[in-house]
Design a protein around this nucleic acid. Sequence first.
DNA 1: GGGTTAGGGT
Length: 960
Amino acid sequence: MESNNDEPRRLDGRTVSGLQQALREQAIRAMNRGGRSHHGRGGGRHRGRPPGLRGREIGMFYRQRAMEREQQEELESFVLLQPEIIVKVQKMLSEYDSASTSTFRSEFENYFKSIRSTSFEQNMKEKLLESCVEQDDRLDEKMMIEYDEMMDNLKFQENMITREKLPVNTKKEEILNAIASNQVVLISGDTGCGKTTQVPQYVLDSYLSSGKASLCKIFCTQPRRISAITVAERVAWERAQHLGESVGYQIRLQSVLPHERGSITYCTTGILLKRLESDPLLNGISHIFLDEVHERDVNTDVVMGLLKEIISHRPDLKVILMSATFNTSTFSAYFNNCTNIEVQGTLFPVTEFYLEDVLEETKFANFPEEVQRKRPKWEKYRNKYKQSDSLDDYTSFIEPYARSVQDKYSKFVIEGIKNPNSEKINVDLLTALIFHISFNKPAGAILVFLPGYEAISKLHTSITNSKFYSAEKFKVYALHSMMPTADQKSVFSRPPENVRKVIISTNIAETSITIDDVVYVINSGKSKMTNYNPETKLQTLEEVWTTLANNKQRRGRAGRVQPGICYHLFTRAREFTMDALPTPEILRTRLESVILNLKMLRIHDVAQFLRKLVSVPDDSVVQTSIALLKRLNALDEREFITPLGLHLARLPIDPQIGKMILLAALFKCVDPITSVAANLSFKDPFYRPLGKEKLVDDIRVKFSKDTKSDHLMAANVITEYREEKRKGNERSFCYDNFLSISTLNQLEKMKGQFTDLLMEARFLESSDPTDPKNNYNSSNLDLLRSIISAGLYPNVAKVRRVKICKRRVDPRMDIITPEDGRVSFHPSSINSKQTGFEYKFFAYFMKQKSTAIYLFDTTMINPRALLIFGDGEGAGFDQLGNHFILLGDSFRFRTNRVSAEVILKLREKFDELLQKKAINPGPVDPESEDALLLGAITEVLNAGRFSGHPDYSSDEGNVM
DNA sequence: GGGTTAGGGT
């Protein structure tokens, strides 16, 4: 076509380095190919391999070479625009070019500049001038009268009798004195000591009774939404008041706020964190209680770090940390060795037994003898020595212990614990123990802690299939966050006499769900944990040994109503090897959201701030997260927050999903995309009841219709739910389709929150997600999928092959991502059951490695959308005259000159538009030049299914 | 050949 160009040339007008890099690689590849073919023809028996290789090395060489070839080829695709589209779009673009200008919206500019130029400290100093709580004599008098009335209330007095029996009451004066004379105080106490409900009241009442209530405003954070509500309700009840008087709560999208002054507000840690963004000095707040700090969730750790800075600017602010009784020295040390007041718990004593005791008592001895693992031969060969090592490890670890206790236990017990398989979860042993307790021990519910869904399912089947089981004598519950039982009240109810209640649970019953009548706990000693590997940049889900802290918490669940028994299904020897505490969450997770929020707080050197936290995250994780934020254009090269970043930080969702809903506002497809965003940032509305897994999968496929998208499937669910609700039919709709009403309602509320915020930021004219003005393009399926991919980018996978397998229901697939190599659609993804994809590319949000690297949620994507909304520094043409565009740094699209020009121009102009909209937020005026650009993009996307060149058609076309 | 611990967002 354009034969006058012998030199590679830029098509997108950006820096040249990426192009040069790409060309260099291209040249190297070409050389390699040439080299191989030369050897292939002339080298005879060596077929291109270097001389001197022997035995296994030869095999390894060919394997390696085949893998490299395959990877390189499979990352290449084709894209071509048809001529009439090119002409049309070029015309639109030339009109756009002449019209486009941009300016800051003035009030936003000031705000933005202040965020970039002010430091955290400066900001606090400025805010200090505005903030000064003054005592209000009239208010004090009024509240003192109310206080006296409350004290006269009989109900209050009656409740006071119970309150005074709580262990924390013995330390009331000590606590009040400590808080009065210290800025930071740590109160530690175990379950039932009353610290959460009582201590804030002690403080409030001391202000009320001394006539200074107008100076008292207490916030108490909780890690979970439910606990914020239930604690607030309890405290209001103790005071013989309704919520909203001196006690209230605030969680996301739901609050009953108490009086402005002289009050206690229980809120989630996230609420406090969000408040700090605009109110770093916590204006008007006199006391901050941070509860459950020992749980070490990300939010609590970050808030602790911030409070440490804030207290020097707010000498009148009191901080009270509350924790369980382990690890308290860490928190005390963190706050300059602050006073620690320890309170006893009220739990009943719990007797502990270990695996060896359980074997003795149940006479169980059937551990499998063989180390039976099906493995490919080569892996077995490679791991031969390693495996016997681990067997030796176990022997050397258990032998000394077994010898030390051999006189106390039967021979079969000693032999049993010497078998490494005794440490695996054994459903037969669990079943035997449960029936043993049921038939031999006094009444009381049995709570079994298992690592996850699969173990719960197996044990449930084993119990209900046993000859000892009968529906009249047993009530068996499975408890898991995805099972409906977790939302129902029945699991809390006490069974009739002579009926044994058995609850099989994940660690949801460790903290989130409390069942009072439990007397027996069976602790498998295993739990699942996500981890983040900075090297592979992969999130993993692994089964791990519990920690001593977990064991203590699980054990405590047996002693709430009477003395209890805890059976640990591991030996005392194993207990010695267990960690004291779980790894704090901030060391196990990616940090994009945290970093962006810190930037909002005007903390520019986030790495330095993070180094001052109780636990310091790995610097490489910080750098990876910063790199992604830069790639999203939320941070600039100098790591300053950009106007776009500022909008994303204000939204209560991950930055990638925030970008998705911002694009939805611009492209007018708000209803479906806010559904997608809510679903990704909250949770799946589908239950997975035991034994109904396949049924639920089928229903999901049904809801996905022809979208080839888990994301749009969820959007369809919400739309249909709304329709059924309008007809008053939502209950049966949810029941029939295994949907959670409460989750769906929360998703609807979240959608409203998103549109409220988008309207506040001026990206929308209507805050109703379903308003037609917000949804001109909501039925354009290809556009919806494109917006999803634009948000989720660079999370892209490519399907190489789909095969229908006779012996299986689901097709087999061969999928890759550039970063990970082979990956799989998770079986719960609707795309794991589909064939006949029109495009090979898929966007995903969650990727997690367990038994394989799974993509949990996927949407099939038109590659044109990726090219327009994605990034990549290389484009040009190679020696053979083939034009190409690089997507990211791996996917390569062969194309022709005009197609490349048009696509890259659209990409460039769209980036500009987004930046322009970020500094001057507003809906796209349908009459404006911006609408022209969006129209041009829509035009290209809509024409995507056509492919004009016979050589290229296979790549944009069907995959089977 | 193939399956998810638990939380959180003015």
